[in-house]
Design a protein around this nucleic acid. Sequence first.
DNA 1: CAGCCATCTTGACACTGTCAAGTTCGCCAC
DNA 2: GTGGCGAACTTGACAGTGTCAAGATGGCTG
Lengths: 191, 191
Amino acid sequence: MADNYHHGNLRQALIDTGIRIINEKGEDNLSLRGVAAECGVSRSAPYSHFKDKEELLEAIKGSVNDKFTDELKNACAGTKSADEALIAMGRAYIDFFRRNPDYYTFLFGRQNIVAHLAMDKIHEEDYPPFLLLREMYKKHLKENNLKKSYKEQELDLLKTWAVVHGMASIACMTGVETGIDWDDPDNGVVT
Amino acid sequence: MADNYHHGNLRQALIDTGIRIINEKGEDNLSLRGVAAECGVSRSAPYSHFKDKEELLEAIKGSVNDKFTDELKNACAGTKSADEALIAMGRAYIDFFRRNPDYYTFLFGRQNIVAHLAMDKIHEEDYPPFLLLREMYKKHLKENNLKKSYKEQELDLLKTWAVVHGMASIACMTGVETGIDWDDPDNGVVT
DNA sequence: CAGCCATCTTGACACTGTCAAGTTCGCCAC
DNA sequence: GTGGCGAACTTGACAGTGTCAAGATGGCTG
């Protein structure tokens, strides 16, 4: 049967059902054998597409990261100024992980990002969400006619990222409703 | 032999070697059987002290959390004002996870804290490090003769925790050296 | 048509968490 | 002391896991 052999797009199927399983049952309950089974394929078929279980997880991570980055971009899309965009991004960042708490550990747990990007300092890295933040931040400086030293900019970016990222983490841990008027504080931090 | 039976303090021994293994080989490579073996005890001996592997992990987590809280307290100890104490705590918080990056995921990963403390909102929780932060924050308000609404206080605390926690997370992910003059920014955020 | 080779399968192994049943031994009532 | 209770520990067993080696399949290229 041509059904069993040459599945067609097993690689993508594995990634997709992998994401679904993580959503339904959490990262802990994702097994290579399980993913393979749900794709209607034998236990070691995945080894034709991924060296490791780890490599499949990395691929899934990449996919989730794309979705995350898209949501951040969409949040920016409807805004008229860089200031608005920064606020919208902050909201979207936190919302994303409030809606999918499991993704926080999944994306940021372990040494994933380090392994992926091998960056030395934050401002040298190419983590897409951070690139987006920097871009908007520079726009914000231009629009408001602000001049800052490189050091000051670096610190602003780090602080902004930290506060938003921290809020997301806290929101995931506690399930807290961030009853916060982002229009004020985020701006306060950035400027 | 009295050596095999009634180990004496197996419970604590399991926790201690558990911590050691996590330090040496990471959480992923910690197996119940492994811990038991290193304690010179059979594979299911741990089940006399812990219901689960999860219950052992929780115990280890508690132990690590104690160490973390101690370091924060020690950081406060040498300070003369609440403002100084807050800064010292922020530094200690970030330093702790820069020294032990694995602990970040271990402590804050999954739903650990939620499961542990079952808190609804941040200001109602009893997570020791946060209690310490709030205590120092209130001292800071008193020492500086500041009056703030409950809402404002809540927001200050959340923002402060978020920025410090976020910095810690970022530091763990990136291994970045936080070349930051904490004497300025932290104060700026808190006040 | 021949055969290459990516793709997939089956068999096997070591390792894991967990349970049931049995063993050991300190301790307490008699 | 002696009996035995019960906590602490052991051994045997089972299902599930990641991974590899060897073989089967079948679309593509010559």
